[in-house]
Computed example of a mutant assay.
Amino acid sequence: MHTVLKSIAAFGTIAALSGCVSPEQFETTPVQLQTSKGVVTCQLYTKDRVLWDRSIDRPTSMPVQEADEICKREGYRQMKEG
């Protein structure tokens, strides 16, 4: 019974903490990148959250996945830069 109570308490703590993290807390000022297809606007996050980087505006001729990859590359570039 003691192990069950510990498990329930641990699960409750994890659930409570996971609700406290919001991506908005880590956002930086959006950046615009010129590409051969047009301007991509990227929402970058803090340097330790590069996997969250994504496009928030892109040329209509560009798939979302391509625009998101451009933003992730920019996030990694900035992370390496400093």
Rank of each mutant, 00 (worst) to 15 (best):
K80P: 00
I14E: 06
M62K: 06
P59W: 13
C42L: 04
P63C: 04
S18V: 12
S7C: 11
T60A: 15
S36Q: 15
I70V: 15
M79Y: 04
E66F: 02
A16K: 06
S55F: 00
G75D: 00
L33W: 13
G38T: 03
S7I: 11
G38C: 09
L17M: 15
R58E: 15
Q78P: 12
R54Q: 09
Q65G: 04
C42M: 02
Q43R: 01
V21Q: 10
S7G: 13
M62S: 03
R77Y: 11
P30M: 12
T41F: 05
D48Q: 05
V40N: 08
P30S: 07
Q34G: 04
F26Q: 05
K72S: 00
L44F: 02
C71M: 06
K6A: 08
C20M: 15
S7N: 13
K80I: 10
K37V: 08
D68H: 09
D68T: 01
D53T: 02
V21N: 11
E66Y: 03
P59L: 06
E74N: 08
S22Q: 13
D57M: 08
L44C: 03
V4R: 07
S55I: 05
L51K: 03
T3F: 12
C71Y: 03
T46V: 04
D53Q: 03
L51F: 09
P59G: 07
V21P: 04
K80Y: 09
T41Y: 05
E74R: 05
A15P: 00
C20P: 03
Q65K: 02
S61W: 05
I8S: 09
T3D: 10
E27N: 12
F11A: 15
A15K: 05
I56V: 14
Y76F: 02
T41V: 14
T46E: 01
Q32R: 15
L51D: 06
Q78T: 02
E69D: 12
G12Y: 15
I70L: 14
D68M: 06
S61P: 03
R49Y: 02
M79G: 00
D68G: 03
P63M: 08
Y76D: 00
S18P: 00
T41Q: 09
Q78G: 04
S55C: 13
Y45V: 01
S55W: 03
G38I: 09
K6V: 07
A10H: 11
D53C: 01
K47T: 04
T60N: 14
E24Q: 12
S7R: 11
A16C: 10
M62P: 02
Q65T: 03
S7P: 05
C42W: 02
W52N: 00
G19K: 13
E27H: 11
P23W: 11
A10I: 15
E66H: 04
S61T: 14
K37M: 14
Q25T: 06
F26V: 04
W52M: 05
D68P: 05
M1L: 10
L44P: 04
V50K: 01
G38N: 06
T28H: 10
T35K: 14
T46R: 01
I14D: 04
S18H: 10
R58A: 09
T60S: 15
P63A: 13
T3V: 10
K6F: 12
V31S: 07
S61K: 10
D53W: 01
T3S: 08
G75Q: 01
Y45W: 10
S7M: 14
R54C: 01
S18E: 11
A16D: 09
T28E: 15
